[in-house]
Design a protein around this nucleic acid. Structure first.
Length: 219
DNA sequence: CGCGTTTGACCAGCGC
DNA sequence: GCGCTGGTCAAACGCG
């Protein structure tokens, strides 16, 4: 299936987020089915969005759904390591100053390689889910980005990853975690985070290294 | 030895 | 005020 960018009404998004009956194209369809909507259900620049999500032409694509908050933003796609089939982005941006992005992925592994290096700092059994929630923090010095990872309570095959904050650095490099990466250019990841930082404000994005440098692979 | 994980303790926010 | 819950801390431990 060719790229199918277009409107994604909230009802559809909600159904997808709930894992209910919304099927996606096969994951081998590069950059397929990326929908971006704003609060008025208006599709934004899908081409630009896709470019942000999938900087490497021909790279395998996650089927991402991203709900835009007050302004548009983009995120790097996580790597779909072994067992992943598809996933979806969703946002819980409650205010322009908070940048929290959720990602629900059908995966056998809980830790998705998104190009950044994470250090686990906590594990907690939460009441809302029978599965424990793991807490990770970006290992990069000065980067306060955190993420929570937990199994979907309704369907343990899915992993729910919530990013909290904006990276203020480029990715550590390709091949982090040993697996292949969606990102042909590590800097592309930082670029997308930077876009998010621009869209959501500087609150959680210290101005250090705000502009991603192309071809920079160290942090 | 450095880095990451594990795990119990601690703390803060929230509802009753 | 108290208890519950989610999030974080930090010491112990394991591994390369």
């Amino acid at each position: 299936m060719a790229a199918s960018l277009g409107l994604c009404h909230h009802e559809t998004y909600a159904a997808a987020a709930a894992g209910g009956g919304y099927s996606y194209p096969a994951p081998d369809a590069a950059a397929s089915s990326l929908f971006m909507v704003d609060d008025d259900d208006v599709c934004v620049d899908g081409v630009a969005a896709r470019r942000s999500f999938f900087p490497a032409p021909g790279a395998e694509a996650a089927n991402c759904f991203m709900e835009l908050g007050p302004s548009e933003y983009s995120l790097p796609p996580p790597v779909l390591a072994g067992g992943n089939e598809y996933g979806e982005y969703y946002s819980s941006l409650s205010s322009p100053s908070s940048s929290r992005i959720g990602f629900r992925t059908r995966s056998e592994v809980e830790v998705l390689d998104d190009g950044f290096k994470w250090r686990k700092y906590g594990k907690k059994a939460v009441k809302s889910s029978p599965n424990p929630r793991n807490y990770y923090r970006c290992s990069a010095a000065g980067c306060g980005v955190k993420k929570r990872v937990e199994r979907d309570r309704d369907d343990p095959r899915y992993v729910v990853t919530t990013y909290d904050g904006i990276h203020n650095h480029a990715t550590p490099g390709t091949g982090a975690g040993g697996g292949h990466s969606y990102l042909a250019s590590p800097a592309a990841t930082a670029q997308t985070w930077s876009l998010l930082a621009q869209a959501t404000g500087p609150a959680s994005a210290p101005p250090r290294h705000a502009a991603a440098h192309s071809s920079e692979s160290s942090f």
